[in-house]
Design a protein around this nucleic acid. Structure first.
Lengths: 360, 360
DNA sequence: GTGAAAGCGCTAACAC
DNA sequence: GTGTTAGCGCTTTCAC
């Protein structure tokens, strides 16, 4: 019943009364063909609803140069935006875009990259912070050389290159600077007891954030002991749990800097649960400026990291002919976006109802 | 400098001192090969860091059966979760997953489906509500027949099949029932003046939602005029704008049913901006149960639509051999999740401070 | 201007 | 057990 037979170029040629070579020529369009035959062929192709076989085409043409992105998960707003940027930029340049998710499992990352090598992807983009151990270094070095050997590009997006001499492009944010700015913002508002919630020791992105946090503290003349990092990792529930715990401990602090906006969401909820108010009792700043930041209560002051632009930059870099940019990291700017979650610290023992939030 | 030459099966054969056929056999694994040769070949392949050419393989093997999803955008939580479901299920079954986004443009949808035909995708999943006009019907009929002719499957996910006889699978939610339940929830809490914000006339998903809303109203003995639908479409800003406008009009209502959670987020913000409170002054219910629903203030009562499961069901259905299921839609259940955004309507002219929210 | 023919890298008969 | 060979559908010299 079902014929399950694909229409091939041969069928089109036959129907148009020409050879396959001619059909190929008019379909590729990059060859002078007289309008008369061109029409005949086009008509035949249309009539047969012919579509070329991408595999055959890739086989002879040396790969169809697709763009692959690998990320932890698409449901995280940050990754989703990066993916969207990659997708958009790839589409604009007529490339197909493949998305792979790893759930953070290095093995799945490796499998996927391998698959992309089989596919002959022209660009492979690895997104997101990682723990930079020997295993990581070896893996990435392998990817880089293998991909480079066949003329493909590896892009490290938001993660470091283990070796500047590796044939890989790197693009990312200055997490340390962003975190420093966020912390300074809090310090300028008068806070001195600020805790960082959401550390993840070993993870390059979070380590940079905590480093920036410590730097800012030091710049304001505070001793190293002033730093208090809670290594609970990322995610709403981690933030909620950590903050609840912190509140229970009765530890003295007036502000928290959350590892990202999801953590901040959890923190906010924990504060509310405890009957406290933001920013009157506690100030909070997040990281990434996820869409939900403006819907939180109060709207969250956070660090904007243009994720979509990161994705676009990754493919732009890879597809640009600036192979000179191979070693040097391409760093995108971040900036604070001030909303309503930061205020002056409450006066010790005083009533919190002094007035609205008045950040600098 | 760069050799740009791919390692082929021939190279492996040569190094292992066997023929290409033998290499193919051990690599495919589906053929008895003595351990001795197997080892030699494996070792050679590893030494050369050989990866098979997926295109060549697909060319001879009749396509590599990938799964393609097409959606509006990945940054919408709902779509992201559907995509994650598809990705996960596809990965578990060893299929590669391609993601395409259309931004809602039918032309881009068409282009992408065409591309998937070229790729020889085994499954093509179209996600999300649409305006069901003649153009849509024709397009989908074309996809369905073309895909079916080469043994591929088309899955309509959250959108209707224009014709039950079309060789397409359909899976989705009962939007009407979900909306009816949400509206009933509001009615049971005592509300009589409920406005639906986020209509999108012509869109199958939203039309079903408004239909459910009207049905619930009727079931509770309210006249058709009791329905008030604001056709502002989806999205946070649309919801914010519409609600602000509504409040300004001074129109009488005590509850709003938002087209989805993003709209609800905008609505909530507008209520806050106006100095009113949810649920004391106005009750709100959303749709989809996006992750952000629980972070809103107050946590949002909404209709849970298991998006990831929708994605998984789509590929499961397509990959299952139950070709009998071709015409009949596969409907997934939804249910209300009660949080804190619904309370009894405020007593006319009374102070709103009667007590906490106490939904049935 | 157009056709014939040689592969691209691989798998699957079909020999031996 | 393993090698030889014929394609899969297409592009692209090279002839005519």
């Amino acid at each position: 019943m079902t014929q399950k037979k694909r229409v091939t170029i041969r069928d089109v040629a036959e129907r148009a009364g020409v050879s396959v070579a001619t059909v190929s020529r008019v379909l590729s369009g990059n060859y002078p063909v007289p309008p008369a035959t061109r029409t005949r062929v086009t008509r035949a192709a249309r009539a047969l609803d012919y579509v070329a076989n991408a595999h055959a085409r890739a086989l002879v043409g040396g790969g169809r140069k697709t763009v692959a992105v690998v990320l932890r998960q698409v449901t995280s707003p940050f990754y989703a935006h990066v993916a969207e940027g990659v997708e958009a930029e790839a589409a604009e340049r007529g490339r197909l875009c493949l998305v792979g998710t790893t759930g953070g499992d290095p093995q799945r990352e490796l499998d996927f990259v391998q698959l992309m090598r089989e596919e002959g992807a022209g660009v492979v983009i690895l997104v997101g912070g990682v723990v930079e151990d020997d295993s990581y270094r070896a893996r990435v070095a392998h990817y880089a050389h293998a991909l480079n050997a066949v003329g493909s590009r590896l892009v490290l997006c938001g993660r470091p290159s283990p070796d500047p001499d590796l044939p890989a492009l790197v693009v990312g944010f200055d997490n340390e600077a962003g975190a420093r700015a966020a912390t300074s913002h809090l310090l300028s508002a008068g806070h001195r007891d600020i805790v960082f919630i959401g550390g993840l020791p070993g993870n390059t992105a979070l380590d940079a954030r905590t480093a920036g946090y410590r730097t800012a503290l030091a710049e304001h003349g505070l001793p190293p002991e002033a730093a208090h990092v809670v290594d609970c990792g990322l995610g709403r529930s981690a933030g909620h749990r950590a903050m609840t715990e912190l509140l229970k401990q009765g530890r003295k602090f007036t502000a928290v800097f959350a590892g990202d906006d999801m953590v901040a969401a959890g923190v906010l909820r924990a504060v509310t649960d405890a009957g406290l108010r933001v920013p009157d009792d506690i100030s909070v700043v997040g990281y990434n400026d996820a869409p939900l930041a403006q819907d939180l209560n109060p709207p969250l002051t956070t660090v904007r990291t243009p994720a979509e632009e990161l994705g676009r930059a990754a493919v732009r870099l890879a597809l640009g002919d600036r192979s000179d940019a191979l070693g040097v990291p391409h760093i995108l700017g971040t900036h604070i976006v001030v909303r309503d979650s930061v205020g002056p610290p409450p006066r010790p023992g005083g009533a919190p109802d002094t007035g609205g939030p008045t950040p600098a």
